[in-house]
């Protein structure tokens, strides 16, 4: 039952922390900001707290980590708890697992964030253009995107990365381009429903230009769904990067990352048979770190969607 303790205790601590944070922010801040926090459901508070912890952890990894990212020690393959200097043990090369875990978070989250930003820049621009201009540009872009989307993302990513060569930069570019297709679809669809509105018609009749239409009329009205989509896309990109790294084709060593760590640590799972739960749950540490962040982002996105959609009754 030690395992339940590992799961329940951190979750309880995080929930308590989230509750406290919500109370404090709601008390100290006034106006709309404070009101939003006061009305915030527990799930969203939990999500925000966890995301903040991850962001702080990612930014401060060099300070928090006890050793350097690829610092190698003489004692390799140490089990967790075997040596107090290495809380989570060391890997097959003698690198501290805790350090790898912290740096892994920094690398995985940072790379996923950059990739999502690139995807949005590309996808949203093209999507709004297609929705506004229509005609052959819309057709050409949509058909090109159709072709890109006709091949499942992971499959296409595998194919492209093999061709371009396995490097972290190539993976970022490939995923950004592939993921921008989804952003394009959303931006075009949202733009399409906005473009038929009367106020767009009015703006057109006023003689406003393309830039005005996109940035002053469409973008503000599409901001809420796009922002929510950003959270969701980040999760997808994050999971895709983790999956690719898990398959051995994503983030390349010596960079630490969670996907690769899961694969490398997965052999420890067999120790559950001998009752060594500490060792057996080692691969689940990076895996659950991935899961927790995606859950947290999803909670926040859910809350944002709920606040901005008219569905709230």
């Amino acid at each position: 039952m030690g395992f339940l303790l590992y799961v329940a205790l951190p979750l309880a601590v995080l929930t308590g922390l989230a509750w406290t944070v919500r109370r404090i922010v709601a008390r100290t801040s006034q106006g709309r900001f404070g009101a939003a926090f006061r009305a915030m459901p527990m799930t969203a508070a939990f999500g925000l707290t966890v995301v903040s912890i991850y962001v702080i952890g990612a930014l401060c990894a060099p300070v928090l980590a006890p050793y350097g990212e690829s610092q190698v020690f003489d004692e390799f393959n140490l089990f967790p708890g075997e040596n107090p200097a290495f809380v989570l043990g060391t890997d097959q090369l003698g690198r501290d697992q805790l350090t790898r875990l912290l740096y892994g978070g920094r690398n995985t989250i940072g790379i996923a964030f950059i990739t999502t930003m690139l995807a949005f820049l590309l996808g949203a621009t093209l999507g709004f253009l297609a929705a506004t201009l229509g005609g052959w540009l819309d057709q050409a872009l949509s058909r090109a995107i159709d072709v890109l989307m006709a091949i499942p993302q992971l499959i296409f990513a595998l194919l492209l990365i093999t061709i371009l060569g396995q490097s972290t930069l190539n993976m970022i570019l490939v995923i950004a381009v592939l993921d921008s297709t989804r952003v394009f679809r959303l931006a075009r669809a949202v733009g399409g429903t906005i473009i038929v509105m009367d106020y767009i018609e009015a703006a057109r009749l006023r003689g406003e230009g393309l830039g005005y239409l996109i940035f002053r009329e469409i973008l503000p009205n599409a901001a809420a769904p796009l922002l929510a989509e950003f959270g969701l896309r980040f999760c997808f990109v994050f999971l895709l990067i983790a999956a690719l790294s898990f398959l051995g084709i994503g983030i390349q060593p010596p960079l630490a990352d969670w996907g690769t760590m899961v694969r490398e640590l997965s052999i420890y799972i067999a120790y559950a048979e001998y009752g060594d739960w500490q060792a057996a749950s080692l691969p689940l540490l990076p895996a659950s770190a991935i899961a927790l962040l995606t859950v947290a982002v999803n909670f926040v996105v859910d809350w944002m969607l709920d606040r901005h959609s008219g569905l709230k009754s």
């Binding site: 799930t43 996907g259 799972i269 689940l284 895996a287 899961a291 859950v295 982002v297």
Partner: peptide
């Protein structure tokens, strides 16, 4: 909450959890 948790988990997380409880332990 259940479905969010499940969506957010990468396949290998779910897979290793299942292996840990239904196969190794």
């Amino acid at each position: 909450i259940g479905s969010l948790t499940s969506i957010s988990s990468p396949e290998f997380f779910v897979a290793y959890l299942l292996i840990l409880f239904l196969s190794a332990a």
